[in-house]
């Protein structure tokens, strides 16, 4: 392996395929969650599953888990910017609700 590549350690085609199978399983779990009668429980399940799927793709397929710290900081900065955007506009949204 050349020095400019991420050390993917134990990740093999078999591991990638297992992760793909898990992702498909989670997809069907989210479809099942859509049928749950309780809206709150359904929403938590649907978005919980989506977050787990996204993290799995980022960690294992994009190799974020074993990336250098600079890359992790760049990604974190993106999510922080998004977080501050959401927090920044939230008071306006609440204000609209109360009208």
């Amino acid at each position: 392996m050349s020095s400019d590549q991420v050390d993917m350690g134990h990740l093999t085609p078999k591991t990638y395929t297992i992760i793909w199978a898990i992702l498909l399983g989670l997809l069907f779990l989210s479809l099942f969650a859509g049928m749950v009668k309780s809206p709150v429980l359904a929403t938590v399940m649907i978005f919980g599953v989506a977050i787990i799927k996204a993290v799995m793709v980022m960690f294992y397929y994009m190799h974020l888990k074993v990336e250098i710290v600079y890359v992790k900081v760049a990604v974190l900065a993106g999510f922080l910017a998004l977080f501050f955007f959401v927090v920044g506009v939230y008071p306006d949204v609440v204000g609209q609700f109360s009208k």
Partner: peptide
């Protein structure tokens, strides 16, 4: 601590895309 420029550049770009799509979805 250095990554290839291509990979690092793509990650920087994707970080900005997080804000674009994340903002829209939020």
């Amino acid at each position: 601590m250095l990554a290839p420029h291509g990979r690092l550049g793509m990650w920087m770009f994707l970080a900005s895309e997080v804000v674009v799509f994340g903002g829209l979805l939020a």
